[in-house]
Design a protein around this nucleic acid. Sequence first.
DNA 1: CTGTTAGCGCCTTCAC
DNA 2: GTGAAGGCGCTAACAG
Lengths: 339, 339
Amino acid sequence: MKRRPNGITRPTIIDVADIANVSRQTVSRVLLDHPRVAPATRRRVEEAIENLGYRPNRMARALVTRTSLTFGFAAVDMQDLHFGDTCAGMQEEARERGYYLVVTRLEFEDDRGVGTLETLLTLGVDGVAFFPSFMENADIETFAATSGCPVVMIGRGAKIPYVVSVALDETAAANLIVDHLVQSGRRQIGVLMNEMFPEVVHERFVALQRAIVDRTGVARPPVEADHPRIKHGRKAATTLLRRHPDLDAIVGFNDTMAMGALLACQDLGRRVPEDVAIVGYDGISFGAVTSPPLTTIVQDSIGMADAAFRALLSGVRDGVPVEGEVMLWQPELLIRGSA
Amino acid sequence: MKRRPNGITRPTIIDVADIANVSRQTVSRVLLDHPRVAPATRRRVEEAIENLGYRPNRMARALVTRTSLTFGFAAVDMQDLHFGDTCAGMQEEARERGYYLVVTRLEFEDDRGVGTLETLLTLGVDGVAFFPSFMENADIETFAATSGCPVVMIGRGAKIPYVVSVALDETAAANLIVDHLVQSGRRQIGVLMNEMFPEVVHERFVALQRAIVDRTGVARPPVEADHPRIKHGRKAATTLLRRHPDLDAIVGFNDTMAMGALLACQDLGRRVPEDVAIVGYDGISFGAVTSPPLTTIVQDSIGMADAAFRALLSGVRDGVPVEGEVMLWQPELLIRGSA
DNA sequence: CTGTTAGCGCCTTCAC
DNA sequence: GTGAAGGCGCTAACAG
């Protein structure tokens, strides 16, 4: 029984073996549910485990099996409810299948995000799922190619070698939104985007812009970019409305920014939806409590989480397709009061 | 260079040593910034590391050092914004100090939560911080006593041996709320509580009840319990208002439940705050967007996260006080429109 | 059915 | 300043 730095001790497999009067190997067999153990022996070992409060050390086990039954999950902002829903979905799925999910924040400062994913690897995960956010496709490809484990990207529909991508069909979503706005008579549609990293293609922005140009004939729809938080959305929407007083609709990058737009309209005395229609993305529950309640694109976070988890699992067994793979999910427009 | 199950390989310290033409120990010294390495040797090793894209295996390292520079964090619901804020705060703090935070969901089915915390331990964390939620003090004590690492509990002000507790001063919070309500003429105050586990003492409920009894003279303030989600809060508040039509104030267990109460009032045609005043806990950002905006108890999530992290850190060095320790945080009442 | 041997990737201790 | 031996806790492969 070895001492830990602070003096408290945790039993090892050897302690169990000593007490049960067997070899370490036999204890290991009991732990792994190996069939060829005499029932009496098994019972003795189980009793020893119970009495000692023994728990196997997963690091030691992973070191030799090269498998930790652990997946890693990374996203820039766990407080973002769409990320949170997906993370929770994966956690649930993991639990049911005997896996463990290690969650961490994707840090730009950490080698443009690659460092975060690498650290996950050195922690011994069997696969990595993540929301790319600011990460560049090239970095993602390099990481995936050298990772030696399945890599699943959620929320960007790019085809990257060695990567399975689970993403919303952004074109379909943009069309749903703009069709709805145009049908209710809107013509001047502004867009609130996530703060942009110039290196990164914003599929959402591109899709929205195309849909707006196609359906309203406006050549360059106004856009303002900021952090995807309520107060930044409020600021950006205020700027947008000041610069373009004739705007009759605003599409937010997500529900949170759209809520900021709601506040901006209040500030400026514009009625929603009479003067300005507002639409968000994600379908978070708080959208039901705003005034008016938020019209939004609903993403099937749970379904996407399940798909991501299954992709990791099958990647562990069969490897990830070298050419990469994209799984697109169809959006749904939830019409509430704001548009 | 060993092969992983899927065929892709990751370099080990031996590969680096071979390429740099030194022994493993020298590579290890470079990795650990050991001073006694010749500059030229160091450079050769660093180049080899760079070229190979080598990253040390933290599990192997932790196995021998008995230190992983990793802390574990657990909470029932990562989507709860107060939990999320605290988690994000700890993650930030961890990063700055060279630590890594492993986050997971506390599962009741997993041995009443103890299993979740134990699994974190078998993953090799150097300390555990968690929101106890449904966990019982006795289980927490047992876990902490046998964990062999610092254990920090957030959000329950109980003094438990081997545990450092970082919690809101519930009495102060309850008094702030009830004083404010009474001052604005409310006398019939109902309470929305988190779904109750009979074994667990709800400090928040006890504090609220005492404050209400003291200040209004009502002997048994009405209470309804359900999950801390908007729709459950709505249901519970509806029940409460139906059973007690004379209620003129509702205190929610958290902001989310309070938002449910907002919806219930809308459903039943009660004006907020004219007919019914509503107060929540936590001070989440979405409270600013509801109609009317939510009056709430603000918790200093970041400050509490910092304190929790520091407690873990000092626990690693000096051990956790055997008698346990409670750090109380003072609440603040943010008065917006709903009360 | 059970024990022995070897080694996962790395660091610590002790040589030189 | 550098290398060799030994072991962290565990399981795989082989013996018996």
